[in-house]
Structure formats: structure tokens, C-alpha cells
């Protein structure tokens, strides 16, 4: 039971798609922790990585409800898959002649980069999974974090498996593909539990 779940969605690259997705999350009371959208390998589609809070049942509902949007072409819950996930953060750290060396030590420790220098501050760019970004942020806090921005998670399954929309030629295949995508639902007969 993961509380931070990673969903990958491919959506038609059309005006208003983000609003549709956001409207759905708001209306259903789902909590988005982060949502990133960008281009992907297929022209005409955008790829979203969505991190949501919730138990298995809620995440299952998120996927099923999202898929009802006509503009959502595919949806994969990759929470339990081996994956690479990355986040980029820009952290503006207070740094003067007095402590700059110490700040740079931390930068180095995290194999981060300094992308801007000023007499009273540095901007550190850090790339990694959220654990790494959190840890770095924690360390920089001692110097004073003036401003910070994180992109939110982007993720991709490891190995040759993808989260791309499956190619389909007929409607039967399409239905089968969708049911496989929405596959978190446990199969067979289970003890009763409601609400």
C-alpha cells in the first residue's frame, strides 16, 4: 500500500486537456502531489506523470476516472513497477564569502550544480529522485533557503517495457488493452469490504 503512487498518462495534445484532468481531480477529491506534462516520443500526444496520494482503491479509481476522459489515450499505474524516477530542483541558498565554501561542499556531496552565483546567494540545481532532493534540501536549510522550486516527478519503467499506449487495430483489442491497463483490481473472489 503505497501512499505516493505514480501514474503515467498519455493524452491528446489539445487545448484544454490539462484543465480536464485538473477538473476531474478536483471534482473527485483526489489529491495530486505533482503533475508534470511534456512532449513524448509520439507527435500529437503529451505525456503526464502524476503522483497521487491514496490507497490502492483510490488510485484504482483515479485511473478509471481519468480514462473516462476522451482525451486520455492511455493510463498506467507504475507504482509497483521497477522504474526510474527523477526530479529537478532549483534551490536558492543564502551564501556569502563567509560560508560559501561550506555550501559548495554540500553541493558537491550531492553531485549538484551551481547555476548562478551572487555575492549573497547561489542557485543550486539538483537532479535525482525525491529522496535525494529532500536530503539536499534538508542540508541547505542550515544556510538559509531563499527560494526553491521542484519540478515534480517524471518517471519511466525500467527495461524494455514501456508505458506507451498499446498499438491497437480493432475495437476488441482496444477494449482488452484498456482492461489490462486498468488492471490493479484484484482478480477473483475476495473477502467483502465496503466503503
Amino acid at each position: 500500500m503505497a501512499s505516493r503512487n505514480t501514474i503515467v498518462a498519455h493524452v491528446e495534445d489539445r487545448p484544454g486537456v490539462l484543465a480536464r484532468v485538473a477538473s476531474l481531480f478536483r471534482r473527485r477529491g483526489f489529491n495530486i502531489e505533482s503533475l508534470t506534462v511534456g512532449q513524448c516520443e509520439e507527435p500529437g500526444l503529451s505525456r503526464m506523470t502524476i503522483v497521487v496520494d491514496g490507497d490502492d482503491h483510490q488510485v484504482d479509481q483515479v485511473c478509471r476516472q481519468l480514462f473516462k476522459l476522451i482525451d486520455v489515450v492511455s493510463i498506467f499505474d507504475i507504482t509497483y513497477e521497477p522504474m526510474v524516477d527523477r526530479e529537478l530542483a532549483l534551490i536558492k541558498v543564502s551564501a556569502t564569502n563567509f560560508n560559501r565554501r561550506e555550501v559548495l561542499d554540500v553541493v558537491e556531496m550531492f553531485r549538484a550544480d551551481v547555476v548562478d552565483v551572487h555575492s549573497d546567494s547561489l542557485i543550486v540545481q539538483i537532479l535525482g529522485d525525491e529522496g535525494k532532493v529532500n536530503a539536499a534540501l534538508g542540508m541547505f536549510q542550515q544556510f538559509g533557503v531563499l527560494e526553491m522550486v521542484r519540478t515534480g516527478r517524471v518517471a519511466m519503467r525500467r527495461g524494455v517495457e514501456t508505458s506507451k499506449p498499446p498499438p491497437v487495430s480493432d475495437s476488441q483489442q482496444a477494449a482488452a488493452a484498456v482492461r489490462a491497463m486498468l488492471g490493479r483490481r484484484p482478480e477473483g473472489v475476495l473477502p467483502f469490504a465496503s466503503d
Partner: peptide, 27 residues
């Protein structure tokens, strides 16, 4: 919901995948 016939097994036929398991666990 939580006191609806707690021992029944539920079969649910629905065209909308999002309806399945929305309010009740479906066997």
C-alpha cells in the same frame, strides 16, 4: 454502504470500468 448486507457476494455488470468497485468491493 458499510451496513449493506455484509455477507453477500456481489456480481456487477457495468459498461463503465470506473463504476466497478467504486462504492462496493465486487467479487
Amino acid at each position: 454502504f458499510k451496513d449493506f448486507n455484509p455477507t453477500a457476494r456481489i456480481v456487477h455488470i457495468d459498461i463503465d470500468p470506473a463504476e466497478i468497485g467504486k462504492n462496493f468491493h465486487t467479487h
